[in-house]
Design a protein around this nucleic acid. Sequence first.
RNA 1: GCCGACGUAGCUCAAUCGGCAGAGCAUCGACCUUGUAAGUCGAGGGUUGCCGGUUCGAUUCCGGCCGUCGGCUCCA
Length: 606
Amino acid sequence: MAAKDKNQEPQDEQLHKLRHSTAHVMAEAVVERFPEAKVAIGPPIKDGFYYDFDLGREPDGSLKTFSPEDLEAIEKRMRQIAGGRHPFIRSEVSAEEAKRIFADEPYKLDLIAGLEAGGVDEYGEPTDEPPVISTYQHDHFVDLCRGPHLESTGQIPPDAFKLLTVAGAYWRGDEHNPMLQRIYGTVWPNKQQLAAYLEKLEEAKRRDHRRLGKELDLFSTNPDEVGGGLVLWHPRGGLMRHMIEEFSKAEHLKGGYDFVYSPHIGRGTLWETSGHLDFYKDSMYSPVEIEGQEFYLKPMNCPFHMEIYKSRTRSYRDLPLRFAEWGTVYRFERSGVLHGLTRVRGFTQDDAHLFCRPDQMPEEIDRVLGFCLFILRSFGFNEFNAYLSTRPEHRVGEDEKWEAAERALEAALERAEIPYQVDAGGGAFYGPKIDLKVYDALGREWQLSTVQFDFNLPEKFDLTYVGEDGQEHRPYVIHRALMGSMERFFGVLIEHFGGAFPVWISPMQVEVIPIADRHNDAAYEVAAQLKAAGLRAEVDASSDRMNAKIRNAQLQKIPYMLVIGDREAEDGAVNVRLRTGEQRGTMPVAEFIAYAQDVVANKALI
RNA sequence: GCCGACGUAGCUCAAUCGGCAGAGCAUCGACCUUGUAAGUCGAGGGUUGCCGGUUCGAUUCCGGCCGUCGGCUCCA
């Protein structure tokens, strides 16, 4: 999740001003209510704004925080300030003046110091702009701010903003800094748009994969008995995963991959060799000891694949080698970060390592990127953000290798015509990478695919191949995961479709609904024909009324409901209802089968 | 890990001031035999997250732990 990336900022200039100005108004209301509060920063963001405050400490030493009543009172006061139609007045000041104005505001002084030094803006973000220091004042509130702002607080529609939540946030986003109290709010040009936004939040709740996972009986977790972040896949979720994996594995075979399998634990020496115990120990589960040897649960599959490569001498003729594994890994995530299926402690990666010669590398990148897009698009993900992360300060590997790898990644992105953002210095210490991220129902970004160069492991494991010249050479290693992890992919997939999955992965595809008991035999006969045709079907032979059977099937988002009464039973026909509510009328069973098979083959929605 | 909110039946939620813990759905049983989103009646189901304190008495008040949710930091 990249909370602070540029996509999060409102695109529209006027909306940007509205949100920024509302943040200032909120800050005034907060400072009035808490005169001892120190203000930090308050930028506009996607869908709203926030402002951070330091409220000081309670007598018992704990952090002073906002209560729900505070939020209510602040919101009420904001309406008054908006109604006061105070103009926003911009002033340019010298650093000295700024320090005098904000003498009592330590966070602002920190920002001014940054501005003075140049190179960072008033949020502490890097900037190329010359260090002009400006303030904006409205009513009694003055803020260090680049702007721009509305002309007056009167332009803030008093019925189109709402304070949403309070949260803790570290100053400058660094957990070693003091924790501030952040208020999130939203504001829109009019109350209709506010209402639409709040409705969108409600819709997001309905699509939440944790809720749908329960309602559709797809998966569960049991923190008390099993452990947090450890997922139980129920039969319906399991069937979906099976379909997804089967599809992907078949494509891997077509793409020239070999399947390998590796154990869930490995000796400490392995993780010493790989460097994980140096760099990654905090995220690894504690070792288990047996017969004097330490074993660790694997946080990654990489070292095992390196060992498979090393198990014999490799010739340049053997390359490229592509080792794929649905490898389950365990990482000790801090308790506060677990989230449904999208952030867990045990997960299965659709992992693979590509071993190739330098001359093969550009083509391998092209192929893997194309493969990636093909897989994502097969599941209806057509919108995503691509990131190219380049060399960080601390890194291994020669600069020529980095140069070649970065150029290869960039060129592959260009050839694939994918718009991307460069995350300069965002690469891993062992190599540059491309990440593809998609959105969940709340617009939060989740990384699925990753294509990473690894300059570290080939050295650590001393991987070689014998070249045409009879000499040993170091192969390139590319680590990649397309869906990322089955858990996260599934979570995002659930939200993407709101539980109404394309027919080919729908756990139950057809609900056969007899109207009365006397139609049960005909219904079972139809279901048998459907199953024989490869469709997943069941009969609802419960004592419910037909209306209730339809309702239950609708709630389960089963694509097709086939109603069978006297007329259908007599003709060997079915009456077809789609989960969209559309009724397709009565047709022979064979006709429905042909239609449904076609939808499945095309991976269509319905 | 940090800040805040929350934790009552399988699920969604009630329970006034501290006084016998309830409803709907789901489950089970019986009846009903139905034409495109909930048929009727009945039954079972709880150490109110855990531990401790205050009290004659705690779902309720206090403290500690665990967990969930929203953020922060971190990450597939």
